[in-house]
């Protein structure tokens, strides 16, 4: 897939990776613009259901990143997160979910260069994997524009009601 631009979300912790990503920008380092960064108070706050929600809303991959172990602003948030990801990755693995699309990393506030590398690598990997159509198949189909006969289901009649 040459021209495929993956949609990538990043769940980052406020204290380390968010600051790290900021440093990447202020140091004028370039990294792909595919990533949408969402700031969390701590990696311990990232419920596994939020990861599912990200995939529901159509991302092809996800970066989860926070402080290095022992560096957590709240002392132990990332340790709890670490255990959670081990278990969560196993659930998804057993269920056949493509866990190659979830990138777990630790990026500190000083590691601007590492953040650029993490995003670049992730986008490269996702370009190789292509869009996550397997998962998108199980989502309920939505109406797509333009509403011509080709995109709409055959049974569906479309009529504008409010204009």
């Amino acid at each position: 897939m040459e021209d495929f631009e993956p949609k990538l979300a990043a769940f980052v912790c406020n204290w380390c990776t968010y600051a790290g990503a900021d440093l990447t920008g202020t140091s004028r380092m370039k990294y792909p613009s595919n990533v949408r960064i969402l700031r969390f108070p701590c990696t311990g706050r990232i419920d596994f259901m939020l990861v599912m929600k990200a995939f529901d809303s159509g991302v092809d991959g996800l970066i989860v990143s926070g402080c290095h172990p022992n560096d957590c602003h709240y002392t132990s948030g990332n340790f709890h997160a670490q255990r959670r990801w081990v278990v969560f990755k196993e659930v998804l693995d057993i269920m056949g979910f493509d866990t190659r699309r979830i990138f777990f990393t630790w990026v500190s506030a000083a590691e601007g260069a590492k953040w650029a590398k993490v995003v670049t690598d992730a986008v490269e990997e996702l370009k190789k994997l292509g869009p996550y159509s397997e998962f998108k198949k199980i989502l309920l189909k939505k109406l797509q524009f333009p509403l011509d006969n080709k995109t709409a289901d055959r049974e569906i009649k479309t009529e504008p009601v409010i204009s």
């Binding site: 509403l147 569906i156 009529e159 409010i162 204009s163």
Partner: peptide, 10 residues
């Protein structure tokens, strides 16, 4: 500013 509604007819 338009909303489209399509009824499902099965």
């Amino acid at each position: 500013d338009k909303v489209f509604i399509s009824k499902n007819e099965n």
